[in-house]
């Protein structure tokens, strides 16, 4: 060992300049991080400002309430009513969630409670694949597979069996609320399943074991321990899935039929908030038309924000 006690290499000789530059670096770094963090706020503000600035003239003209409740949409005559789109968005989302929630719950139970360990990963992977498929590809598949199937098989059968209900009356067109809702169901399924899985994983092992210790069967353990403990989280999954469905654009635009009317039958064609924006924004000729579409966007934004915030509160913060 030949380490003489040399004078400390840098310190005693270090000019104060270095200390100064160190602090500047730290200050700049913190400033950058703060800017990036506040960028998230800025982004939210920006979204609101841009939407509001575009939409305000229109919301002033007929008034917000009139805008939301009128069902007349005629861009050429500059008459703008949002009701058909709000209606279509709600109906398709409701169909999607009603269809997907039980299935998503079943998938989550299968993965967490039923499947042997070796099967869990491949099933989880397959469900994740569903969420990786771009929305426009779902639209294509829906257009050429689901719509003909509905038109020729499902809707005639439903009409014959339940046609006395307004919900299932009318000609089987294929394109319409049901088609959009069904494909939406496939698209929100992975969200519902993965959030449910996450929620069920938080059930304490002790709770499960004490139910087993009482002599419960596996299903009774699920019913008595797993489901009650997960209830608010599962409602959160439901709300989150609904939020997803509300904002989904392309598949709905390709399948809902694009008719700005308020249909009471699931077989009828309709329109949704997101899909009318997608279809008309690029060709909107007048400021009023752009403004009306932006106002629809504002409605969509506020509704999805509300749903997401509610879902976050219900699912709870499990991050460290």
């Amino acid at each position: 060992m030949s380490m003489a006690h040399t004078a400390p290499l840098a310190m005693s000789g270090a000019p104060p300049r270095r200390a100064g530059s160190v602090r500047t670096g730290d200050r700049l770094w913190r400033l950058f991080l703060l800017a990036a963090g506040c960028g998230v706020f800025l982004l939210t503000a920006l979204i609101l400002i841009v939407l509001a600035r575009l939409a305000l003239p229109v919301l002033h003209q007929p008034g917000t309430w009139a805008f939301l409740t009128s069902s007349d949409w005629d861009p050429v005559a500059e008459s703008f009513g949002a009701l058909p789109f709000v209606w279509g968005t709600l109906v398709t989302s409701a169909v999607a969630v009603v269809l997907a929630f039980p299935v998503g719950l079943g998938v989550a139970l299968f993965i967490t409670e039923v499947a042997p360990t070796w099967l869990r990963r491949p099933v989880t992977f397959a469900i994740e694949l569903l969420s990786a498929v771009p929305s426009v590809v779902y639209g294509l598949w829906g257009l050429f597979i689901v719509v003909p199937w509905l038109r020729e098989t499902v809707e005639p059968a439903l009409g014959a069996a339940l046609g006395f209900l307004p919900l299932f009356s009318g000609p089987p067109l294929g394109l319409g609320y049901l088609a959009a809702g069904l494909v939406l169901a496939v698209m929100v399924l992975p969200t519902l399943a993965s959030v449910s899985i996450e929620v069920m994983r938080t059930v304490p092992a002790g709770l499960r074991e004490s139910a087993y210790a009482l002599g419960a069967t596996q299903w009774e353990v699920v019913r008595l321990a797993v489901l009650p403990h997960s209830r608010s989280g599962l409602v959160g999954a439901l709300v989150l899935g609904t939020g997803r469905a509300l904002g989904e654009t392309m598949a709905v635009a390709m399948l809902i039929g694009n008719a700005p009317s308020v249909g009471t039958s699931l077989f009828a064609p309709g329109y949704s908030l997101a899909s009318v924006i997608a279809n008309e924004f690029a060709e909107a000729g007048s400021d009023a038309h752009v403004g009306a579409l932006a106002a629809l966007g504002l409605v969509l934004f506020l509704v999805t924000i509300a749903f997401n915030a509610a879902a976050r509160l219900l699912i709870g913060r499990r991050q460290p």
Partner: peptide, 24 residues
């Protein structure tokens, strides 16, 4: 607050992002 905003923002429909880019 930033964390909560980011969580909520993550669920904003993509079409709304399009309107923002249009306006900006």
């Amino acid at each position: 607050a930033v964390r909560f905003t980011a969580d909520v923002l993550a669920g904003v429909p993509s079409i709304v992002a399009g309107i923002v880019a249009y306006g900006l």
